[in-house]
Nucleic acid binder design. Structure first.
Lengths: 111, 111
DNA sequence: TCAATATATTCCAATTTTGGAATATGTCAA
DNA sequence: TTGACATATTCCAAAATTGGAATATATTGA
């Protein structure tokens, strides 16, 4: 009975700046590993490892094309993050509501 | 000359599920540390440490109120993440565009 | 089949992260 | 002041993460 390492989740996936860099590189379409390596000041094995993490966290998918593996963003996962952050929208709006209220109040009026 | 540990950024801040749990607990308003401890199956020192990381990553702010430190979400940072994920919106929409096109095509029609 | 190309995996050392226990610091109330 | 309460910090061991080098695997073309 082995303790399995759980797959990294969405949030772990984007925690690393290099992984976000990869996602940003994939924003314009699918890319092979070497194309990413060329753009990234990281050796190929390191890039492949980050890609594995991105894949395990659901953030990218792969497609085989000859000897190449073409990676692409799996935006559905990013959408989940989008939805999560969106629940805080009320809070960043709240701030402006308070400001509005203040500006409309006697103390807030331009003297 | 010491190597300073850089502050964790926004994305590292939300990478940990416990820290996201804290943010979610703060969604309804500011809370003292013990209130968070009571809700969280983590000892007080551990909660304080996660709060420090959240603070350093800009995700929360603190206010002193007597012996308490009241933490609150600093939604502006989450908004940045919201904006970042939003740049991928084109991709998740793309998928639906393709689906729409498929459904509208002869192959996509219900047989 | 063999060599070249594209990518993944293994092994390793360095670094980082984490929680808990113990302890320190700060604040209030009597 | 003193004690109680709220929170932060330090120290420590365990676990996780990371990149590089070396190596393995898969695919294509000659």
């Amino acid at each position: 009975m082995v303790a399995l390492r759980p797959h990294p989740d969405l949030y772990v996936g984007v925690a690393d700046p290099r992984r976000r860099a990869i996602l940003d590189l994939l924003l314009t379409g699918e890319r092979g590993v070497n194309a990413l390596v060329d753009a990234m000041d990281l050796r190929q094995p390191a890039v492949s490892k980050q890609l594995r993490i991105l894949k395990e966290s659901g953030l990218v998918s792969v497609r085989k094309a000859g000897r190449q593996r073409l990676y692409r963003v799996n935006a559905g996962e990013l959408r989940k993050m989008y939805e999560w952050t969106k629940t805080y929208e009320q809070i960043w709006n709240e701030r402006f509501d308070k400001l509005d209220a203040y500006l409309a109040s006697p103390e807030g009026e331009t003297k």
